[in-house]
Amino acid sequence: MRSIDGAVLDLKRLDLLATGDSVIHRLDARAKVLTTLVFIVTVVSFNRYEFTALFPFFIYPVVTASLGNLPGGYIVRKIIMVIPFAFVVGMLNPIFDRELFVRIGPFAITGGWISCASIILRTVLTVGAAFILVGVTGFLSVCEALERLGTPRTFTVQLLFLYRYIFVLTEEGARASRARELRSCGRKGLGLASFGPLIGHLLIRTWLRAERIHMAMLARGFTGEFHSRQVSGFGWRELFYVAGWSAVFVVLRMENGAQWMGRLVTGVLS
């Protein structure tokens, strides 16, 4: 279980990365959202026994993170935290799929192991792509992109409100939970009896806060509509970015780049 404070700090850190200024940061958010989608769809479109062909796809997260000046170590650490979950899910495959896949010397590798490795690799790639998208775009711009790609305004406004108050409410929640932990003196006094009222109180305070926010909105002439300025535009650079990467993904999807390179080097091809 992650601690509340840790999660909030993490959120803030990832959020701050998006305030950077780089070639990638300056692109319109729609281009980055679309490219991420194409990337993820291509990666997961391989069948379950594909393993080596996934490796060339690292080019996308690595290049984007580098051009976007994201701290590599941080992103890698964030991805590593997710791998155990992928491993648990992937581990079921070797149990159920014992069909021989390939024999390397004395080692017989079953299809299950290959697909397990494939699942972990897919996780690393897709999760990495999501983190990088947020890191080079920022949540606000992602929302703006979603809206301009057709998401209903009600929902994007909801996303923005939610995001804004996560920072406020997780701190409130952390305070309440800390108080409870301190007074339960290390015993397991964290049962339902204290949980209900704790969450209940938090809920009531949340409700009152919503009323105050609504008050503040009305005080400034809110009539049910949100206005926003549109900052960036979808130009040739964006088009080039989306088309370029998509082309790379499709080629890598059609052609096992790893196989190809491996053959070139090992000279198996004659």
Partner: peptide
């Protein structure tokens, strides 16, 4: 509580909220 008053994504959007509504 300023957190109740500042509900928009950025400072600009927040300060612009009222004028836009006008």
């Amino acid at each position: 509580d300023a957190d109740d008053q500042l509900f928009m994504p950025t400072v600009f959007d927040d300060v612009a909220f009222g004028p836009f509504n006008l």
